[in-house]
Amino acid sequence: MKASIAQYYPGDSIVHRLDARAKFVAVATLAVALFVRDSFAGLAVFASAGVVAYGLSGVPVAWFWRAFRPLLWLIGLTFLTQLLFAPGEPFFSWWIFDFSWEGLQFAAFLSLRLLVLVLIGSVLTLTTAPLALTDGLAWLGRPLRRLRVPTDELALMVTIALRFIPTLLVELDQIMRAQRARGAEFGSGGPIRRAKALVPVLTPLFVLSFRRADELALAMEARCYQPGIVRTRLHPLRAGMPDAVLLAVTAAIVVAGLLV
């Protein structure tokens, strides 16, 4: 079974080598700009930036497509709802739905905007190892420590969660198979019956996870982990000239996108 949710594509392109924090800031800035600007021209500027970044990343199209495909229906749904429910002078009516040029234009704009957002976001997740991304976010979240938000602990939790997702999926599959071997059926009957059918699957999975949490905590303590300690990292975050360039270029793109 496919047991990885991370879409990270290991590589050594210039985009890969950029610092996770710089990439995150760049993507966040572009995302905000994308939502502030509501013209096709602005969209075109941001889209070209996304395409160029993706091109530099060297990620194969097939890989990108695999990560992107599940989001396609979301974009499609956005298009449809906007098309059907946007106000405007109808040129065509059917049942309770009115189709208008304004609606079509609006729907196209919104779905394209979503498309560009996904593209730009994907460049970040495709070229940044989840661990580096988590570390980067923890670093960016440091000011929150003053508010007693335990950012480093949260980052470690996210890392551990990511590490165990594939394991959990395999275990889920095994338990479902085992219960099917004992005659259980999933996905048939009404919602209540379906929910009930999941008890023999979710109960063992929870128990397993609780036991795991216990054993994992012990193993972490055995390797000198304590909440609140200051840790170093094997792969420290390192920002350099290319990252400064990235931020400068991002600023230029934002200005261009907002002014065209």
Binding site: M220, R223, C224, Y225, Q226, I229, V230, R231, T232, R233, L234, H235, P236
Partner: peptide, 10 residues
Amino acid sequence: FGLENLAWAP
């Protein structure tokens, strides 16, 4: 992991 917890230099 253990070395990170003991704050060894990278």
